[in-house]
Simulated assay, not measured.
Amino acid sequence: MPDYADLGLQLAWPLAIALSWMAGELIFRWTALPRIAVYGLAGFVFGNLAAGYLPPSESKNFMLLANLGFGLILFELGYRINLRWLRHNPWIVATSLLEAVLTFAAVYLVAGACGMDMLPAALTASLAMSSSPAGLLRVLNEQGAAGQVTERAMHLTALNCVMAVFTFNVVVGIGVFQTSGDLAHAAGSSLLVLGASSVLGALFGALVPLWLRMINAARDATLAFALAVVLLVAVTYVLQFSPVLAALTFGLVARHRRIALSPAQRNFGVLGDLLAVLMFFFVATRVEVEHLGGGIALGLLLVLVRGLVKVGVCTAFARVSGISAKKGALSGLALTPMAVFAILLMEQTRWIGVDLFDSLAPLAAVMLLLDVLGPVLTQRAVVWANETRHIKEA
């Protein structure tokens, strides 16, 4: 006779993910709200109602799948970055640098003034520098967005990711050193890991296009790139490198090796869509209600400070970088998502024995809010910039 309690445990997650996808499709059709916002909200609710339904061993498998989905998105973002444009318009790089530095400083000062310790405040500030490629790119592709705001948001997000990963790992390295006094361990958890990850991604970016040319398959490169991203993320996962920098560098180098992906291959088709549902759902389950206690007011304040800095700097640098002040402000607004990027980065620190969730309650509140609100604001930014096209749903 079947054990119905055990069957419930085994079926809870697949059923919840399927229902999350169905809810996302229905709400998108009824309200045009981004699907990923629904996936995130469903994941948070399920994760707190059924926290015991996922054993630790299965949690690691889900985290690997989430990183695979994130890796595909990071590869696509890196692939869509045009280095020549950045060289011809250095004001975009200047905008990103100033916006990231001021975001770090503002969030750090506000968090410190509200009573956070120095290390958690610095970690919160470093994550606040970032914008989530997952939230941004999925919304842009869902809306069929193209134009100045779209391109600028993608380039700023890529630059923000690199600076945020660098700063976050430096801060974590300092924390590890303060705790253990082991300088080698601290260095190994920060700068050396970033360098090795970038080199590994660049190596894939050079070798995969070379392989495609050898077999004359450059016109149908989607499967090859998808398999390469899966392998790259798995390698970085096992070696405890940074999948973020590795996948981003892979896409960047592959683009400049003259291998073209057609628009139909955005999101990597069904594979990318499936992993995206799982990723946004699973990542949201990592934010527990207990993490929110006492941190909601500060979290809301940090969201406001972060948003004002990003919109303000992008607006201030808009005209010198070649766009109107309105489009500059909308570019800053499009950078709102950060939840998936922040949570996956925090999860990676558990590989080196550093658990940050309990010490960053205000950031948990920020991530919960931006998991839902962030994609909506990105969608509104490209809609208000008139850079979307109507996509007829099947």
Rank of each mutant, 00 (worst) to 15 (best):
Trp13Asp: 00
Leu159Tyr: 05
Ala284Lys: 01
Val229Tyr: 03
Lys327Ser: 07
Gln240Ala: 09
Trp351Gly: 14
Ile92Phe: 03
Trp30Tyr: 11
Ala153Pro: 05
Leu227Lys: 11
Leu9Tyr: 09
Gly195Leu: 06
Thr222Leu: 12
Ser197Arg: 03
Arg266Met: 08
Ile352Tyr: 07
Leu26Ala: 15
Leu275Thr: 03
Leu140Gln: 08
Leu308Met: 09
Val320Lys: 08
Arg80Asp: 14
Val340Ile: 12
Ala316Val: 00
Ala385Thr: 08
Arg80Ala: 13
Glu288His: 12
Val45Gln: 09
Ser130Pro: 02
Ala218Val: 13
Gly322Asn: 03
Asn169Arg: 10
Asn48Met: 12
Gly205Ser: 06
Thr167Tyr: 02
Ala145His: 01
Ser131Gly: 06
Asn61His: 11
Cys114Ser: 14
Asp220Met: 15
Val270Lys: 12
Ser59Gln: 14
Tyr79Gly: 07
Leu373Thr: 04
Val176Tyr: 04
Gly40Tyr: 07
Ile343Leu: 15
Ala184Phe: 10
Gly201Asp: 00
Leu373Met: 15
Leu302Tyr: 02
Ala113Glu: 08
Val171Glu: 03
Leu49Asn: 08
Leu363Trp: 03
Val235Leu: 10
Ser131Asp: 06
Glu142Gln: 13
Ala18Glu: 09
Phe281Gln: 08
Pro14Leu: 05
Val340Tyr: 01
Val230Ala: 09
Leu140Asn: 10
Glu387Thr: 07
Thr150Tyr: 07
Ala247His: 02
Gly8Trp: 07
His185Pro: 00
Thr336Glu: 03
Val110Ser: 01
Ala12Lys: 08
Ala264Arg: 14
Val165Gly: 01
Leu77Ala: 10
Ala364Val: 05
Tyr39Asp: 03
Val208Cys: 05
Val303Ser: 03
Asn48Ser: 11
Ser331Gln: 04
Phe44Thr: 00
Ala37Glu: 08
Cys161Ile: 08
Tyr53His: 11
Ala318Asn: 01
Leu191Cys: 02
Asn160Cys: 11
